[in-house]
Amino acid sequence: MRTNFKAALLAAALLMASGSALAETNFWQWLVNFSRQKEVKPVDNKAYLEECGSCHFAYQPGLLPGKSWAKLLDEKALADHFGEDATLDKDVLKSIHDYAMENAAEKSWYKRSRKIALATEDDAPLRITEVRYIKRKHHDIPEKMVKGNKDVKSQAYCNACHTKAEEGIFDEDTVDIPNFPNRGHD
């Protein structure tokens, strides 16, 4: 009986520990997840996911502060969105802009977003890769693994290495750099 109890306790502990790999997709998962809000809030807006995601990884609003999103998601700015025309209908743009503002880094309680908000107090970077916190997190990764890696090419492709990027999870344990199988787990 005792051992059974111990086994159950162990199982429960293991389940809790594996929480970091689970995104909180509903309230109950969120409630039992001990590592809740450690990461970045996953995108939960269909228009945002579709419009942004039709050209690139749909970066979570919690990856940049509101002042950055305001600059990016502006009608004129979108006509030259990093060299591409990404103009949107007025109503679609408004819903995407509002969603990004409401979920921007400084509005979020997710831990990584808090760190991003802190790191961008004095500036409004247009690229997530220019956020000091993000730079720091990636500074020890040699160029050959990113730019020189034909299956990555740039840090802009979050999900090339962050296997759970869509769920807002950027934990080191979930990193798998293509063509460098041993990196990320050492």
Binding site: A79, E84, D85, A86, T87, L88, D89
Partner: peptide, 14 residues
């Protein structure tokens, strides 16, 4: 139709 027009606008410009 909206989608077609959206991409015509963007891609012709690009």
């Amino acid at each position: 139709a909206k989608k077609i027009e959206k991409w015509f606008k963007r891609n012709c410009n690009d």
